[in-house]
Each structure stands twice: as C-alpha cells, then as structure tokens.
Amino acid sequence: MKALQIPVKLYIHALTRPLPSQAELPYVISSADLTNISDVYVLLETRVISIEVIEPEPIDVIGKQVDALRAQKERIAAESHRQQSVIDDKIQQLLCIEHSPVDEHELPY
C-alpha cells in the first residue's frame, strides 16, 4: 500500500458574534468558505495543507460500502419500528374510547 498526499484547502474564519455551538471558540476552521452562508463569519485566511492517506485496496472500499449499507438498513428498520409503534398507540387509543350516550343537557366539559 502506498501513501497518497491529498491537498486540502482550509478556510479560517473569525466569528463576529458567538454561536450556541461555538460558545468558547472565536474561530472556525472549515473546508468551505462560510462567508457566503452568513455574516457571522469573517474570512481571516486560507491555507493549503497536505494530508497523508494510505490508499485502500478495492476490497476494503467494498467492505466499507457494505458496512454503510448495513448501518443504513438498521436505521431504516429502527425508524420504521418507531413509526409502527406510534400508529399502534393511536389505534389502541381509538379502541379504548368508550361510547356512552350524551345527555343533551349535560355540558361536554
């Protein structure tokens, strides 16, 4: 396996006002220029760094894809189960409603 040198351009921003998620850090380093998104960010400088990455074998890439698909399948199954439970609860609530004749002189509340 050989190592690849991947250049990455980093954008270093200062915050003009604190964000809830950035309460203690007055600076944000990102791989995108955030000044286009909001006026909260002021671009201070950009830097290009090089990251060394070991080139994966094709079988490793396939393995990562399979792992990601399995995780996605689990998330979908969990969300489906959650939604089914909500629907089951609504059905049970409807089935538990007692029908009783309403006296027209009785206030409904």
Rank of each mutant, 00 (worst) to 15 (best):
L4R: 13
Q5V: 14
I6R: 14
I6W: 10
I6H: 09
P7K: 05
V8T: 11
V8H: 10
V8G: 09
L10E: 10
L10F: 08
L10M: 12
L10T: 10
Y11H: 12
Y11P: 03
Y11F: 15
I12W: 04
I12C: 09
I12F: 07
H13K: 06
A14K: 10
A14P: 05
A14N: 07
A14Y: 07
L15D: 01
L15P: 02
T16P: 01
T16G: 11
T16I: 10
P18R: 14
P18W: 08
L19P: 00
L19F: 05
S21D: 14
S21M: 13
Q22L: 09
Q22A: 06
A23Q: 08
A23W: 06
A23D: 04
E24W: 06
L25Y: 02
P26S: 06
P26V: 11
Y27G: 06
Y27T: 11
I29V: 12
S30Y: 05
S30M: 06
S30F: 02
S31V: 13
A32R: 00
A32H: 00
D33H: 07
D33I: 09
D33T: 08
D33N: 13
L34E: 05
T35I: 08
S38H: 07
D39Y: 10
D39N: 13
D39A: 12
D39S: 13
D39M: 07
V40D: 02
V40T: 07
V40P: 01
Y41S: 03
V42Q: 03
V42G: 00
L43P: 00
L43V: 04
L44R: 05
L44V: 05
T46Q: 10
T46S: 06
R47A: 08
R47L: 03
V48K: 03
V48Q: 08
V48D: 06
I49S: 00
I49H: 01
S50Y: 11
I51D: 09
E52H: 08
V53N: 02
V53F: 10
E55M: 14
E55L: 15
P56T: 08
P56S: 01
E57N: 12
E57V: 14
E57S: 11
E57H: 14
P58K: 06
P58W: 04
P58T: 06
I59T: 14
I59N: 10
D60L: 12
D60E: 15
D60N: 12
V61C: 13
V61E: 13
I62P: 02
G63V: 12
G63C: 15
G63I: 11
Q65I: 14
Q65V: 15
D67V: 12
